[in-house]
Amino acid sequence: MDDKILLTINGAVATLTLNRPDTLNAIDFATIDRLHDLLDFIEADDALRAVILTGAGERAFSAGADIHDFSSAVFAGPEVALREFVRRGQRLTSRLEAFPKPIIAAVNGLAYGGGCEVTEAVPLAIASDRATFAKSEIKLGFAPPYGGTQRLPRLIGRKRALAMLLTGDPIDARTARDIGLVNEVVPHEQLMDAARALAAKLTAQSPLAVAACLASVTRGLNLSIDEGLAVEASQFARMAATEDIREGITAFIEKRPAVFTGR
């Protein structure tokens, strides 16, 4: 099971690679469970400050949920389907969305169904110019169950999202960038270098401030502006007594680079 996701660590950056290229990195139940375990490990290690998530092989980031794996749960009836398939997938995308360290999706190929939902859930995404995105669940006779009907409209707007959801038609990487599904598109051979360069920028910041930004945005998106401002203020209050905020301000005054320790 460990081979379903590869973990490599380079300094403060952990790279997770979905490693089922023979299935276009389809996400089966064991992959979901293993990804949770690895995220727990990364969260507990203070030396790790950013995550890159990508897929093995040249064809796919992820083709989505493994149909052969989840079909038995669906055919067992609504109660089993909700417990084993829907809630498991929603827990994963919610975990990715709320993770306190920045996750960068390096989308190296097609990202369909659940693979697109993973891209929607993580805070940042860079796509290869070969990448394509689709909400393919409609062609299997169901609506996206891993959060796609909720996150995609919030990211790209209701009408654009419904066009993808109701047709299942793919879009290319540049269209995904233009509508806000990914941050950047780079030549395929430069994808991992671009993801590592972005991760390096993030790991140079205060990990406490990064976590505060992630929490404020993720929580605030679904709140009124007044409630969101209260979340923002509470995150600042948590930072106000830290060494990192003192270091950042002092370094600015002294005209030197700040060195953040996460304390």
Rank of each mutant, 00 (worst) to 15 (best):
P207N: 06
A106R: 00
L124F: 14
T167S: 15
A173S: 15
A233N: 14
R177A: 02
Q190F: 10
L221N: 14
A63W: 06
R49W: 10
T8L: 07
G228I: 11
I171Y: 02
T54F: 06
P145I: 15
A127W: 00
L155K: 14
L110M: 15
R34W: 08
Q205V: 06
L18C: 04
A50P: 05
E247T: 01
A121L: 11
D46F: 04
G77W: 07
A240K: 13
Q90T: 11
D45A: 01
S62T: 13
G114Q: 12
G113K: 05
N10S: 05
E184G: 04
A258P: 05
S224G: 15
V107E: 06
E254Q: 03
K139M: 04
A161K: 06
I9H: 08
T31Q: 01
F133W: 03
R20Y: 07
I104R: 01
A194C: 05
A197H: 11
R246I: 00
P21I: 00
L140M: 08
G109V: 13
A258Y: 09
E117K: 10
M239K: 08
D178K: 11
R87I: 05
G262P: 12
G77P: 11
P153L: 05
A121P: 12
F85L: 12
A73D: 13
I104C: 02
A125F: 07
F99N: 01
G220A: 02
A26F: 09
P170N: 13
A121E: 07
A111K: 04
R59T: 03
T119N: 14
A26E: 15
P207M: 07
V80D: 11
V210M: 15
A50F: 11
R160V: 12
A209S: 06
V86C: 09
K4S: 06
F75G: 03
T23D: 02
R174M: 11
P102Y: 09
S224N: 10
P170I: 12
G147S: 09
R91N: 14
A81N: 05
L202K: 00
